[in-house]
Simulated scan of single mutants.
Amino acid sequence: MPPETLPVDPDAEPPPSPRRARPSFRRTARRRQWDILAAIAVGGGIGSVARYGLAQAWPTPPGGFPWATFATNVSGSFLLGLLMVYVLDVWPPTRYARPFLGVGVLGGFTTFSTYTVELRGLLAAGHWSLTDAYALTSLIAGLGAVWTGIAAARRAARLPVRRGPSRRSRSASSAVPRPTSSKGRAR
């Protein structure tokens, strides 16, 4: 069949024109991404092997609390909080730190899929209260671990720990008068 009669994929890029000597921006940008993908892949392999080792060392009994996955996800959240402070505020910018460590190693180490499969298994076995405890404590502990990691990294790097505005600074800086009660005193 001649090439003119073949169906054309609408998502496919047109072939390069022979007049163009330089590669297009899109092709150059795509070529530059392979090194980042390689860094993520190597980091993901390291992180997933570490997670597998922890799961083998700390097996979950049938109907028991999945401590290995819980510890993996909470410690990974803590490490991600630490890492983001160092990558964004402390270390000089690098091309590979965040993709390799954050997306690769910690992305391969932490596991939302295993968490979900374990929740489904606990539900299927009728362990309703254990399922609730695992779901809620994992989310709350993960959020607390990220915050703790950020605060610890900022303290270690001697950066101010951001806590948001206090009541005193909000009231002192606001130009709007506070509402008063019917007796004329501020609430």
Rank of each mutant, 00 (worst) to 15 (best):
176 V>F: 14
149 G>N: 04
164 G>L: 06
6 L>G: 05
109 F>N: 01
28 T>R: 14
187 R>W: 13
100 F>A: 04
14 P>Q: 02
68 A>R: 01
9 D>K: 00
127 H>E: 08
35 D>G: 11
161 V>M: 06
140 I>Y: 06
71 A>T: 08
137 T>D: 01
15 P>Q: 10
174 S>A: 04
161 V>L: 11
33 Q>D: 08
109 F>L: 07
12 A>Q: 14
82 L>H: 01
171 S>N: 05
45 G>L: 14
31 R>K: 10
180 T>I: 12
3 P>T: 07
19 R>L: 13
88 L>R: 02
148 T>Y: 06
183 K>S: 08
3 P>W: 12
25 F>W: 11
127 H>Q: 05
134 Y>L: 07
72 T>Y: 02
63 G>W: 08
17 S>L: 15
84 M>P: 03
26 R>Y: 15
153 A>I: 08
104 G>H: 04
51 R>V: 02
6 L>Q: 12
103 V>F: 10
105 V>R: 03
31 R>N: 10
183 K>Q: 09
138 S>Y: 11
143 L>K: 03
117 V>R: 10
29 A>S: 10
91 W>P: 05
87 V>L: 08
17 S>Y: 13
105 V>W: 07
42 V>R: 06
40 I>M: 09
15 P>S: 12
174 S>K: 04
154 R>D: 05
60 T>A: 04
173 S>W: 06
108 G>V: 04
166 S>H: 01
158 R>N: 06
54 L>Q: 03
60 T>F: 00
75 S>E: 00
37 L>A: 12
97 A>T: 14
139 L>I: 13
133 A>T: 14
73 N>I: 11
35 D>M: 09
95 R>F: 15
42 V>A: 09
32 R>Q: 07
44 G>T: 03
144 G>N: 01
108 G>R: 03
19 R>Q: 09
43 G>Y: 01
53 G>A: 13
46 I>W: 01
145 A>Q: 01
177 P>R: 09
36 I>H: 09
74 V>Y: 00
164 G>V: 02
61 P>N: 00
40 I>S: 03
113 S>M: 05
116 T>E: 13
177 P>Y: 12
148 T>K: 00
39 A>K: 01
92 P>E: 14
31 R>C: 12
27 R>D: 15
141 A>D: 03
141 A>S: 11
72 T>D: 00
116 T>V: 12
127 H>R: 08
86 Y>N: 00
80 L>C: 06
3 P>Q: 07
8 V>G: 05
131 T>W: 14
116 T>H: 09
172 A>S: 08
39 A>E: 05
149 G>V: 09
24 S>I: 06
33 Q>E: 11
71 A>S: 10
183 K>G: 02
24 S>H: 12
133 A>V: 14
119 L>A: 12
95 R>L: 15
76 G>D: 01
137 T>V: 14
135 A>E: 03
124 A>P: 04
122 L>V: 01
5 T>G: 11
33 Q>K: 09
